[in-house]
Nucleic acid binder design. Structure first.
Length: 442
RNA sequence: GCCCUUGUAGUUCAAUGGAUAGAACUGCGGACUUCUAAGCCGUCAAUGUUGGUUCGAUUCCAACCGAGGGCACCA
């Protein structure tokens, strides 16, 4: 099971979420490709202080609810929470009411915003080609998490401190963490405990639970895993945390002090328009054009994320990612489309009777695909596949330039067509693992 | 202060302790009457510093310097 955490209803799906989603989807496909069962899970923060902040601001500035509006209200609520004591108190009170579902007016606002957010996420997932088998919500695991913490408080795993219930990480060389705050509400930590219990209850045979989050949570997960190793070692030993860095737009226009606040849609639209600019010479119908534009834009973005080892920040340059020159998603798509066009033109494949005497780099590389996938899977490192595919596509492009594939006078032609077909198939499989679609033409 | 991550061509990234450190962009130089040139070929250019382990270190260890993140009621 691979779980992408992060997306929070009531917040904009920003480029930080895009990271977790792209990486999580690729890891899922990697495992799936090798024949294992995968449950894609998405853990959404539908309760918690960020929701209270948003609803507080919504209450102060009532307006027709849209995603943009909710995003703005979240920012406003967060600011007021920091700088205005009375607002902070109100927000904390709203937070409690959301948990308890005790205020009908807040319940109505809450349900409306939650529905809107989830629909908005669905639309983005569809565009990105991600799907989920199971959604977990903080609201469904909070109570269970709190109960478990209270149970193990009695057994001495947790401690009371300054009105809160904490895990004394400092005793284990880590740092202390609050699991139940002084309001009696479970924090992210306790909810994660509840989530873990829920996951293994639903999928008891799960051999591994992989959690993808931003690396700012690395230490937090160390504490969490330590905690779990004390209260549920049989679960803790099957959990793996994978931390990614930030996606930082490098161009002036998209840069932002807090890089991860840029909405993913804004970024995708920007990339699509760059793609459109590149494609204005091409002659496609409006519908096909829109589809290609989307595939190429998503590919440019996903490639940029997956090309490097997971963990480090990604300096994202939209211009470069759609440059279509080497080391880009579109470069791979283009190679695949060209190979596909040649195979289509060749028509029904002829029996191969003549084989070349020398082995070309393209053939050697093709044979390595399974071992590259295997290594990627074992290390949860999609970038090995990216590196391999770039090399492979480069080898094909060279081959394509040197040899005429379809040539009735050449007895090697059937072999070359077959080789081209094999290449296109391998490349397409590799791109599938990365979550990149290949258009029919481009 | 403590902890974690990180430092490779001008730039953005690779490199399961092993052969000449591999790409791409940029620069410079080519080929093109041919299946999609969004392509191809050539070329310049790099392991932060100082030690250590090893037959052998970009990789492991230590220190230093630089960058990013975390360290109590956010997620």
């Amino acid at each position: 099971m691979v779980e992408h955490t992060d997306p929070n209803p009531f917040k904009i799906f920003h480029i930080g979420h895009l990271m977790a989603n792209t990486i999580g989807e690729s890891l899922s496909r990697l495992v799936e490709f090798s024949g294992a069962d995968v449950v894609r899970a998405c853990y959404q923060g539908d309760v918690g202080l960020h929701v209270a902040k948003t609803l507080w601001a919504v209450g102060k500035n009532p307006e027709d609810m849209t995603i943009e509006y909710l995003g703005k209200m979240y920012v406003l609520g967060s600011e007021k929470y920091e700088e205005d004591e009375s607002a902070k108190k109100e927000i904390i009170s709203i937070n409690k009411k959301i948990f308890e579902k005790s205020d009908p007016e807040i319940n109505t606002l809450y349900e409306k915003g939650r529905k809107l957010s989830l629909e908005y996420f669905d639309a983005i997932y569809a565009k990105l080609g991600s799907r989920f088998d199971r959604f977990f919500f903080e609201s469904e695991v909070a109570d269970a998490g709190k109960a478990i913490v209270l149970k193990f408080l009695e057994q001495g795993v947790f401690e009371k401190s300054q009105g809160a219930i904490i895990f004394p990480g400092e005793k284990h060389g880590l740092h202390n963490r609050v699991f139940i705050n002084s309001e009696g509400l479970p924090t992210y930590e306790a909810k994660e405990i509840g989530l873990t219990a829920r996951k293994f209850e639903l999928y008891p045979d799960m051999s591994e639970s992989v959690i993808v989050t931003a690396n700012e949570q690395s230490d937090y997960f160390k504490v969490l895993l330590k905690t779990l190793s004390l209260i549920a070692p049989e679960h803790a030993s099957r959990m793996k945390h994978i931390a990614h860095g930030l996606l930082r737009p490098s161009s002036g226009k998209m840069s932002s002090r807090k890089g991860n606040i840029v909405p993913a849609e804004t970024m995708l639209e920007e990339i699509e328009s760059l793609v459109a600019e590149k494609m204005k010479e091409r002659d496609f119908g409006a519908e096909e054009l829109a589809s290609i534009r989307k595939d190429v834009a998503v590919s440019a973005l996903k490639y940029s994320i997956l090309r490097q080892a997971i963990g480090g920040d990604i300096i994202y340059d939209p211009e470069k990612s759609v440059s279509f020159e080497g080391d880009s998603g579109p470069y791979l798509q283009y190679a695949c489309v060209r190979a596909g066009a040649v195979v289509a033109k060749a028509g029904v494949s002829e029996e191969v009777k003549t084989f070349p005497e020398t082995v070309e780099p393209l053939e050697k590389l093709l044979a390595r695909f399974p071992e590259v996938v295997e290594r990627s899977r074992l290390e949860y490192a999609p970038h090995y596949i990216v590196t391999y595919l770039i090399e492979l596509a480069g080898a094909f492009n060279s081959y394509y330039t040197i040899h005429k594939i379809i040539d009735e006078k050449d007895p090697l032609s059937p072999y070359r067509v077959l080789l081209t077909e094999t290449f296109a198939g391998v490349l397409k499989n590799g791109l599938w693992i990365l979550g990149i679609e290949v258009p029919k033409r481009m």
